Computed example of a mutant assay.
Amino acid sequence: MSDAPAHGPAAPAMPDDTLISVRGLKKYFPIHAGWNRRHVGDVKAIDGVTLDIKKGETFGLVGESGSGKSTVARLMLRAYPVTDGQILFRRADNSIVDISHMRESELRAMRREMQMIFQDPYSSLNPRMTLLELIGEPLVIHGVGTQAEIRDRVAELLSVVGLRPEYLQRYPHAFSGGQRQRIGIARALALNPSFIAADEAVSALDVSVAAQNINLLQDLQEKFGLTYLFITHDLGMVEHISDRIGVMYLGRLVETAPTDDIFTKPLHPYTEALMAAVPQPDPKGNRARKRVPLKGEIANAANPPSGCTFHPRCPYAEAKCSTDEPELRMVTPNRQVRCHFAEKLDLIGVRQ
């Protein structure tokens, strides 16, 4: 354990293999009404998320739109202010800092160690900037290198992501979607971060191009020792790239497990429903799979259901589920689930 001092009061220690840890993380967006903009409620976008991401691993985060996946990533990088909870981060010098309530001036130095790859490669790049300006911008902002050194660094980064250094003076419109996303990856790598949040980084791309970029991310992870938070709707993609997976529903984690375990034997009914939506090759129709009916739509985060928030849609719900809120608990080593009856249910995964 590292006992290095952190910002403000001493931050709790983390396991030596952990790079980033969020504890009881909450993000509420206020609802105002009336001529005087009176506070009448909150959208509970994130409502008590706790997870650890180990150094060098890829942690996949899945769930429906509106479940809070992207908000978690933005909170971890402090793009949003935190309502409550801790975000502990292990810096390059092995000190542990709590960035949850850091001032902007203090966060500036942290930006070098944690970066983001955005979903849309078309809107995340300024069309009026050349590749030299786009990829070199983080270096300029942080005062890293002379103009000549920045130019050399950008040329190097273009080569690293599979683009030609001669493209330095070109603009984003000259590139395909897959190439633009590689430009975004190069920009994220500019300051040598240890942690990268990839928010639906390949969802806007064709399947073959997405696969190439996923392979690139894996190669870069091995080469530079990167740690990823990988957010996606594509369960096939997350199965391929992730070491562990967290399943989110209505601002909370409902299950976390190693990838093989969660695809073989899910423990939460919502995870089973997601698994049932994964297409399986079976041209002769010999493979009978149970289809789990998932009723309705994700609830309103401003007025979540009582008890287990998933109970209105759960095919296994009992009376207890509508009144008693389940805790995220450890059921086996490395597996957590938020369900009263996880041990009793016989759920079906993809690999059965």
Score class of each variant (00 low, 15 high):
Ala73Thr: 11
Pro9Glu: 15
Gly246Ala: 08
Arg287Val: 13
His142Cys: 10
Ser70Glu: 04
Ser194Glu: 13
Phe263Gln: 01
Gln221His: 14
Ile96Phe: 06
Arg91Asn: 04
Leu220Gly: 08
Glu255Met: 01
Gly34Glu: 04
Leu250Cys: 14
Leu328Thr: 12
Gln115Ser: 05
Phe263Ser: 02
Ser242Lys: 09
Phe224Glu: 05
Thr50Arg: 06
Asp243Thr: 02
Arg74Tyr: 15
Met116Leu: 12
Ile31Tyr: 12
Thr227His: 03
Pro9Met: 08
Ser123Phe: 10
Pro5Thr: 14
Pro333Glu: 15
Met275Thr: 02
Gly251Arg: 12
Ala10Ser: 14
Ala148Phe: 08
Gly145His: 03
Phe195Val: 03
Glu325Ala: 09
Arg38Tyr: 02
Pro258Trp: 13
Leu217Pro: 04
Ala299His: 15
Leu345Cys: 01
Phe224Met: 06
Thr50Met: 09
Leu158Glu: 01
Glu149Thr: 06
Asn215Phe: 04
Tyr122His: 15
Ala10Gly: 03
Val154Met: 02
Ala211Phe: 10
Gly178Pro: 10
Arg289His: 07
Arg187Cys: 04
Phe89His: 07
His39Asp: 00
Ala302Lys: 03
Glu325Ser: 05
Ile196Cys: 07
Pro269Trp: 02
Pro165Gly: 02
Thr71Gly: 01
Gly8Asn: 07
Arg289Leu: 07
Lys344His: 08
Val209Phe: 06
Arg112His: 10
Ile196Asp: 12
Ala190Gln: 00
Glu200Ser: 10
Ala211Gly: 04
Ala276Gly: 07
Tyr228Ala: 03
Leu191Thr: 14
Val43Pro: 12
Arg37Gln: 04
Leu205Asn: 11
Phe341His: 13
Ala186Met: 09
Lys54Asn: 14
Ile117Asp: 09
Lys27Glu: 06
His268Ile: 00
Gly177Trp: 11
Gly34Gln: 01
Pro12Phe: 12
Leu51Pro: 04
Gly285Ile: 07
Met110His: 13
Val49Cys: 01
Val154Arg: 00
Arg170His: 14
Glu57Tyr: 13
Gly143Lys: 13
Leu347Met: 01
Ser242Val: 05
Gly48Met: 10
Val40Met: 07
